[in-house]
Structures are given as C-alpha cells and as structure tokens.
Design a binder for these strands. Structure first.
Lengths: 215, 215
DNA sequence: AGCATTATTGATCGTATGATCAACAAGCTT
DNA sequence: AAGCTTGTTGATCATACGATCAATAATGCT
C-alpha cells in the first residue's frame, strides 16, 4: 500500500546488522529493563524478522548478558575517564560519590538491580555481573590506595590490603542508596551529605573533605 | 493404582486452604524467587488444581505482593522484637548491623531485590515495597532518635528531623551490602567492621561502639 | 435420607516466549 | 547475464503463563 510499508529489510553487512541488534537491545534494556529483551521485541525495534535476531545471537541469555556488560562497562569507563582528569584521590572520591548519587543514571541502576536477580537463572549473566562488579571495585580500590599512600586518608589500625575491602564496602553502600532511589524518591534529604560523612569516617578523611560542593 | 495417588484434594475450609496457598507461595518465593510464583507452581505445591489458587486470589500480582509483604513484614517484626529486649540505642544499632549482615537472611534479601525490579510492572507490589521500606526506616529512625536524645550519638551540626534522613541512609547502606553478598561472597573481609565504622561516623557514635562483639 | 451449598476440578482460550529451518532474494563474483 | 553465496523471512513447534467457567463431588443442613 503506502510507501512506508517496507516488505523486506535492506540487506546489510553482518557487522552492521549485529551492531543494530545490540544497540536495540541496549535501548530496550535502558527503557524497559533487561527482561524486556526478547527476540520479537528486539526484532521489531530493528525492523527485522525475529529469526534474524536469533541468527546473530547464540541465544537470548547471551544477548541479555552482553547487553548488561555493554551498558555497565560503558558507564565504568566513562566515570574512570573523568576520574583520571582530577588532581588527587580526595577530589576523585568526592566526585565519585557525587556523580553516582545525582540520580542521572537511574536507568543504569535499574539494569544493575535487575541483573542481580536475573543472574540467578542466567549463568552467563551472573558471570558478567561479577566481572563488572570487580571492575568497579578496582576503580574504587585504586582511589583508596592512592589516598592512603598520599596521606590523605587514614585507615588507622587496618592492615594493608584492606583497601580492597574498603572499596567493596563503599561500592555496596552506593549500590544500596541508588537502588533505594529507584523506589523511593522523597524522604531523604542530603543524600550526598550523609554518604560523604559516612565514607569520610570509613577512610579516615577529614570531615567535609568529601562533601560535594554545590555547583 | 497406588494408594498415594489422590484423585481429588480433601475438601478444606476456605480459611485453611487460603493459608495453605499463601504458605506455599511464601516457600516458593524464598526458594526460587517471587517470579516463580505462578498459579500452576503454587497449585502443584499445595497439591491442588491451578484453578483453585486463582479462586482464592484476585490475581497473581496480588498474590506476589501479598507474599512479599508477608515475608518482609515478618522479618521486620522479628528484628524489632529483638531490639526491644536490648538495653539502649547503642546496643540496638550494633545488633541491627550485626544481624542484618550475618548472611543468615539471604533468601529474604533476594526477595527484596527482586521486588525492587518487579515493582516496575506490578503496581500493587510497588506499593507494598514502599510500605515495607517505610516500616524498616521507622524502626531505624526510632533507634537513632533515642541515641541522640540520650546523648549516645552526636549528629553535630545537623538539624532535628535528620534522624529520618539518617535512618534512610543507613537502611540503604545495609540493603546494598546485603544485596552485594547475594552475588559476591568473598572479597570482603570484616564486613561488619567497616559498616560499623561507617555508621559510627554518620551518627557520631564513639569509634568501636557499634562493633559487633564476636560471640 | 435428601437437599442445598460450595470447595474443587480440569479443560479451554488467548497470549507470549525461545528456538528452528526451509524457502526466498539481494548482491557479489565470474 | 548467469550463478552462487548468504542475509533475511515468517511460519512452525513446544512450552508456559493468567484467567475463566461449566461440571463435579464433598460437606453440612433440614
């Protein structure tokens, strides 16, 4: 009938088509969640038959796992890049807390939380989740170690190697608070203030040093 | 054939049957997750036709929401009860941190995390989640307020009413750390130690006062 | 004992999912 | 231009889900 009705999708190179598919899956995950990634859903977003999506992916579980990694790894790298531009560990930690808590990445947070649950029934995804958690932890650990080495942080009587443990702890706190904001918006004033104070206590930084400056 | 083959389930009173169904749903949620609650799954666990489950519940979403509330409310009440038996706010806060982090309630934690995601597509569940979060927060807020009033905690320059905010914050931290332990077991040593130190920093308690004593 | 009530069944409908594969056609090579 | 490679289709299968409801049988009441 109308010219807009396209019977058959234009033939594209495998690389290009594969990119379209992973990009569509990414969009769906961010907008509707990882569990909304289905063969038909992705296919219709690309404008293609469902069979084609299956053709480019071994199975749906793999597509979900890959999409999770793509989304989360991009965020980690982006933040890590911004950290590198900052002068010292104190600024980096303060920036980290401020950025992750500002609510501008709720969609990514939702993906994280859903992945925790889905990993129970998707082994490939579970592995990716652990990988990405490790990546985040590594970034944080580096900052903590630098701070201790430079004398900005004081972990007191804690042994060496506790930087790893501390990094996990801080990461968990951030995760919990961002996940909370997924469900509960109001109620908490001064999110950043409290978290900063808590972390200051943990790493032995000067009170107020991790405070996010109002910009 | 065999005497074990029961054609028809023994007829029971509505109250009794309803209890069986909610109990079955509870077991499924704890063992396999909230999303494993289906009419057929619950029915087979009770040993009954799927239609009967539907007969006792308006719809599956409601059963899921109700099951979430039952599981989580029971935990809150149990912990609140134990808190009441403790002498003061410092002991209560220390106990709270210690108990929630000891890994003995991972199944309940999994239910929490899944509910955060499922609430996106189940409005009734979303409401229950908010309710139960409020209940937890109220318990924590009470402890914090008592501690401030008794001079055990010192929130410094923070205004009154920040006890609410502090309670939310501590709750979020606990949630995140327990959720983390759902996926990642190793890696963190001294979970309790770090958390205790963080919270001590937040509420202005004496260092070590919230430390969980090795029992 | 007979009857009315109601707990219980299980088949059925509509929908959605992942996976598979023979058939088709677009584009490249010869 | 002919032929071959391969990207693409869409129908199909097996499975699972929530929901519905007429039929059935057990219980309690008269």
């Amino acid at each position: 009938m109308s010219s807009t009705t396209q019977k058959r999708a234009t033939r594209k190179s495998p690389a290009e088509r594969a990119a379209e598919i992973t990009e569509a899956a990414r969009g769906i995950a961010l907008e509707q969640g990882l569990s909304a990634i289905t063969l038909r859903n992705v296919a219709s977003r690309v404008g293609v038959a469902s069979g084609l999506v299956a053709h480019y992916q071994p199975n749906v579980d793999a597509l979900v796992a890959g999409t999770f990694t793509a989304i989360v790894a991009a965020e980690t790298e982006e933040v890590a890049g911004m950290l590198a531009a900052l002068p010292g560990p104190v600024e980096r930690l303060a920036f980290l807390l401020g950025t992750l808590m500002d609510g501008s990445r709720l969609d990514v947070t939702a993906v994280w939380v859903e992945a925790w649950t889905l990993g129970r029934r998707n082994e490939a995804l579970a592995g990716c989740v652990r990988e990405q958690m490790d990546a985040w932890q590594a970034v944080l650990q580096r900052v903590v170690e630098d701070g201790v080495a430079g004398g900005h942080f004081d972990t007191g009587d804690l042994e060496a190697g506790d930087a790893a443990s501390l990094a996990w702890q801080i990461l968990g706190m951030i995760d919990g608070l961002t996940a909370q904001s997924l469900v509960r918006w109001g109620g908490v004033s001064d999110r950043g203030t409290h978290l900063a104070r808590a972390v200051e206590g943990m790493v032995g930084a000067a009170r107020g040093s991790l405070q996010v400056s109002a910009r």
